[in-house]
């Protein structure tokens, strides 16, 4: 049963088995995509999906009530990475399409992902580059930025997940924003 295995992975990660964390990611990734597709087919044209709603739905689908609250931080961390990958893959494919010319029909999952966010608002690939620089230099601030940007978590939620004060998250996020903006402007 999927729920049980994800919950087990989360508990093992919490007990310090970092290697198991790798198993978590593909499950979360697949689930997020599946939910996006399901939701999209039920959505009137022109409407978009909220990443936060997707992540929460994936959470309910994948994790049962026995998982400790601390383990949830790992889940949302993995979800942020999965959202990021979905968006980045999608942006890469879109760019390849533009360059390669040929009119290929857009696959359903691409459409789903495009609908998730208004990806034109910011260059997803440039943002990803900036994010990697931030991670190399300031990993904690990058964690906060990932949850803000890709999961849409509020400062209060991140504070609770990481067990720090809201004030700390606020400062980290402000720093991360300045850093990312600087990188994007370069």
């Amino acid at each position: 049963m999927l729920q049980e295995s994800v919950s087990r992975i989360l508990e093992e990660v919490r007990e310090g088995r970092a290697d198991v964390a790798r198993d978590l990611f593909p499950v979360v990734y697949r689930e997020l995509k599946a939910i996006a597709q399901r939701r999209l087919s039920a959505l009137p044209a022109g409407q978009t999906l909220q990443p936060t709603a997707l992540v929460h739905e994936a959470f309910i689908a994948l994790v049962d009530g026995s998982v400790s609250f601390r383990s949830r931080a790992h889940f949302f961390g993995a979800a942020a990475m999965a959202m990021r990958d979905i968006l980045v893959d999608n942006a890469r494919r879109k760019r390849a399409l533009k360059r390669g010319g040929g009119e290929r029909p857009v696959e359903l999952d691409e459409a789903a992902v495009t609908a998730v966010v208004d990806a034109d608002a910011v260059d997803v690939l440039a943002l990803e580059d900036a994010m990697q620089k931030l991670r190399a230099a300031h990993p904690r601030q990058a964690d906060v930025a990932m949850l803000r940007v890709y999961v849409g978590a509020s400062e209060a939620e991140i504070a609770a997940l990481h067990e720090v004060t809201e004030r700390t998250v606020e400062r980290d996020w402000r720093f991360a924003q300045a850093f990312l903006r600087r990188e994007l402007a370069r």
């Binding site: 909220q50 709603a53 208004d118 608002a121 910011v122 940007v149 890709y150 849409g152 850093f179 600087r182």
Partner: peptide, 21 residues
Amino acid sequence: FDAETRAPSLRLAPEREERAS
């Protein structure tokens, strides 16, 4: 860059209260 309020929004995923549309 912190002071630059007109910088592009970094928020790909809006907080749940807000919808992209």
